[in-house]
Each structure stands twice: as C-alpha cells, then as structure tokens.
Nucleic acid binder design. Structure first.
Lengths: 202, 202
DNA sequence: GGGATCAATTGAACAATGTTCATTATCAGA
DNA sequence: TCTGATAATGAACATTGTTCAATTGATCCC
C-alpha cells in the first residue's frame, strides 16, 4: 500500500474511465460496481474515491465521452452534405449508427437516473447544449430570418424524437412483433417532418 | 408470527401495489425498497416475496397500472374528436398531461432497466401493443387502402417521438436554458408531421 | 545518504440493499 | 380440542456505495 507511482494521477483517471466504459458496454450500468471497477484497474475501491466524487460521476463521465463521440460523428456526417435536408438525414443516420454501435453504452446514457433533487453538472450540460447547437445550425437555412424561435423549437423536437426512437427501438420496448429498424423510423421522421415544414411555409 | 388474516391474499396484493405506487410517485423507483414497502403496509419484507417474484415485478406492475390509465385517458380524449388530425392532437395532449401529472411515476416507466437478457413479461407487453393499436386506429383514416404498412410505421414513429419528448422534457435533460413546455413541443411535432403526411400524399 | 515530510493507497468498517428459508404462530376443518 | 395446512416472520447471506484511520512508498532537504 502507500503511494505507488505506477500511474500519474491523470493517467489513472483515464485508465479507470476506459475500464468503466468497457464494463458498461458489456454489462450495462448495472455491471459497474466500485469493487469491480477497482479490481479491473488493479487498485482498491477506496482509490476510486480519490479521483471521483462517487460512482455516479464515473458513469456520467463515460456518458460525456459518448456525447463527445456523437458530436464528432454528427459533425463529420454533416460536413459533406449539399443542402439542409440532406444534412439532417445524414445526422439522423449518424445518430442511429452511434446508438447501434454500442447499445449497452447508449442505454446507459438515457437510463441513467440522476439523483433526485440535484441537477446535472455543468461539464455535462455543456455537451448537451453543444449537440443542440449543431442541430440548430443545420436547421437554420430552412427558416427565413425572424424564424429563430421556430428553428429553436424544431431542433429540440427533432432531437427529442430521435432520442425516443433510438431509445425505444434499441431497448426493444416497442412491440415485439413487427420490429422496425431504427434507421427506417428515423428516415421516416426526418423526411415527413421536413416535408411538413416546407408545406407550412407555403 | 404466523398467519394473521388481516387481509385476503388479493387485497394484500393491491394494498402493496398502492403503497408501491405512492412511494414511486414521491421518490422515484430508487425509493422503492423491500423493507420500505413492507413497513408501509405493515408487513415484513419476506411477505412481499410470497406475492411477487421480486421487487422488479412490483415496479413493473405499478408501471402496468400507469399504462392502463394512459390507455383510458387516450381513449377518452379520442372519442369526441371530429377528424383524425384533431384526434391525434388530443392524443398527444393527453399523453403529455399524463406525464406531467405524475413525473416521478412517469420517469419510472422508462427509466426502468429490464434485466439484461430476459424479455418483458407477456402481461406487460400486452399493454404496450394495446397502446400502439390505439395510435394505429387513429392514423388509419389518413392513409388510403393499401397504406397499412405506412400507417403502421407512422404510428410507431409518432409514438416514439412523443415518448422522447416527454422523457427529455420532463427529466429536464434538454438544455436548461430556454426550456420549452412539453405540450408546445408535442403540438409542433404532431402538426408538422401531419402536414408532412398530407404533403407527401399529394 | 538519511531523516523528515508528504500524499497516495489501502482495507477494514458501516449502513443499507435484495432475496431466501427454517421457524413460528395462527387459522380452518374434523 | 386436536390436527394439518399455511401465512407471516425475521434472522441470515451476499453484495452494494462510501468513509477514513492507518500504512507505506515517494520526495525533498540537509
């Protein structure tokens, strides 16, 4: 025991987060235990509490990493699109791809029940608003000047809707018979909603 | 202490479920513990395991009750509407009202992480498919004959989207600044999506 | 080098969890 | 009143998150 300089403080943190992510991907948030995570990185449970406030923070940090990845993938998918509708479709696709790639982690993202009263930490909220900004930027061209409020609203509606689709479809909480692929549903949502926006503009 | 015949078997079950619902409404699923629930109904923890397989079943039964209520409210809201679009709007409103009425319970409905491998029990899946049928019936008039598949898809897309909106808006997982009321978002979704359906038909 | 200081790491401890099951106290019928 | 049957118990077990005094290695200064 005592200090063992096997890892520098910051390396140990990322090591722990990597292990936590591996565990959550394989067994869900349920599988993430203090003792389990400690064993995985070759340290004792107490050590974890020197670098994180509690287990909840660990899960939240892993989720934040996922959000970063999502932001990167979405931004990349948008980059090469000719117009706003194509960009939105690409974004929805990238979203579903992300969700499909690691269902366990993805579920953890939304199943995570934040403690009763207290709010999300700032460093977490920041990543969420950043994603919304992305959606708003894509939608902006579809609204004329003065349409900021409608754009703002549409971004949130579409985002929430995509989240609902990915959440229900992947958790297989939709009806078991006649499972629709999440991608098909996402396409339907984006195409129809955009058609609606265009129709109402005229 | 032995049998006490204070309650008949079935009464005790409903008594326990009522208490469980009260607890979950007030403190979320997190607050529902075996000992707590037992104390609340004046029995011992062990007794719970004579009427339920485990705590998970208790939470699932409470959720099933919520789904029943939702079905009732949706059906009532639909009944008096003149046309399909109005009915859909009413449905979305009723959905959000339900969510708003008891946020704690509602969150529990979707935050509930079902055990890793095994599926939802039949008596639970039944309530879900029943809700989907309702949505499909409302949408059917908007699709001509031969549009069954599109109708089926739209029902699931709209349903998932509503779920996403209620889930994110109520859990305040949307960005904290500029909170949109869930009702506004639901209206936007339904109106725009329906406009899109109409536009694509022509 | 060697002693003093500092801080990282530990592991035992605590309270609380879900779940099981032998034991017990009571009821229902003869 | 006696006799099964059975509802209810609560102690027991393994496991959880979290804390914190104690310990032990590293670091610094002389």
């Amino acid at each position: 025991m005592g200090r063992r300089n096997d890892h520098k403080r910051e390396d140990l943190r990322t090591l722990a987060l990597a292990a936590a992510r591996r565990i959550m991907a394989a067994e869900g948030v349920r599988g993430l235990t203090a003792r389990r995570l400690a064993r995985e990185i070759g340290y004792s449970p107490g050590t974890l509490y020197n670098m994180f406030e509690n287990l909840d923070e660990v899960a939240l940090r892993v989720n934040a990493g996922l959000l970063d990845e999502l932001h990167g993938r979405l931004a990349a998918a948008l980059a090469s699109q000719p117009d706003a509708p194509a960009a939105l479709r690409a974004m929805a696709r990238a979203y579903m791809d992300c969700a499909r790639a690691e269902p366990g982690l993805w579920n953890a993202l939304f199943e995570h029940q934040l403690g009763e009263g207290r709010p999300l930490p700032d460093w977490y909220e920041g990543r969420i608003t950043r994603l919304f900004r992305l959606a708003e930027e894509v939608l902006a061209p579809l609204f004329g000047p003065g349409g900021e409020e409608a754009c703002h609203r549409s971004a949130r509606v579409l985002w929430s809707a995509l989240q609902g689709i990915s959440s229900l479809a992947l958790a297989r909480k939709l009806d078991p018979l006649a499972q629709l692929p999440a991608e098909v549903m996402a396409d339907d949502l984006v195409d129809t909603y955009l058609a609606g926006l265009a129709a109402r503009r005229a």
